[in-house]
Nucleic acid binder design. Structure first.
Lengths: 146, 146
DNA sequence: ATAGGTGCAAAAGCTTTGCTATTTG
DNA sequence: CAAATAGCAAAGCTTTTGCACCTAT
């Protein structure tokens, strides 16, 4: 069945379009899989340099895009001007609830909302392919400090 | 009661913080209110130049931010790297359904989803202040061309 | 008079791209 | 060996900022 490891997914994605597996891509994939919940390209680049400082910034950007296109990663937009990345393959879908005070964020799962989204899209004749839901608010800790 | 025109809202916002009403701000407000559903700062700047080409780009950016802070405008993020603006005051809240093929978008209203968002946030102890929901899909026209 | 605003051009911040040398299969 | 990739540095795009001059109250 369709349960493939991230490595296999990437390999297949590359092979299908005549692209190559390189040491850089291997290294970046491994580091990507170890990353915490989400991170910016710049943050990832910093991490990468600690492991192999011969890998260039452009490669990091290009590879994160590759991961996204191959379904391994997904991009997030927290509204601060930079793209964030997060592991997608093998993880359950979720949205984000972000504290506007401390910038902390938590992952939320809300199947009821997902279902309603499908319904609303269908109502307008659209076939839903993706969605992004960001909830902004004040977290319990920050509310306590008011 | 609290039904104020955009002009009044801006005036009050400015007065409260010792800011001034200027000819530029008047012109930009008028043009902003005439704009179609949503637009980028650059698009707005192009429009502004047609009316008064002495108004600088920096003023346009600064003023759009002012409109946003004063509640007249809200920002949208369609994921293409630039901020879009849209009239907020006096308009009903809505989200966006965007076609990934032709980039066309429509406004959607889904009170059920809004309510569930409140509930989910509350479940995590958050006080919801804002949210952004973008649905991406393929519109009826583009589906017909498949 | 004086805080605040504007225009201009430069700077900043993130991301992409052109080019040449290397590497993969 | 041919096609694809990496690294580097430069360029690109959107947005912000420093500064000298101007203006609303």
């Amino acid at each position: 069945m369709g349960t493939q490891s991230p490595e296999e997914v990437l390999q297949e994605y590359l092979r299908e379009r005549g692209m190559l597996m390189t040491p850089q891509r291997k290294t970046l994939l491994q580091l990507f899989l170890e990353e915490p919940k989400h991170f910016s390209a710049e943050e990832f680049y910093e991490r990468v340099k600690q492991v192999d400082d011969s890998i260039g910034q452009a490669t990091v950007y290009r590879t994160l895009k590759l991961f996204t296109e191959s379904g391994l990663a997904e991009t997030l937009d927290f509204g601060d001007g930079r793209t964030r990345y997060e592991r997608r393959l093998g993880r359950e879908h979720h949205d984000h609830l972000i504290c506007i005070r401390c910038r902390d964020s938590i992952e939320i799962r809300a199947p009821e909302i997902e279902r309603l989204q499908e319904e609303v899209a269908g109502r307008h004749g659209y076939e839903l392919t993706d969605h992004a839901l960001y909830l902004y608010g004040i977290c319990p800790k920050c509310r306590g400090k008011e």
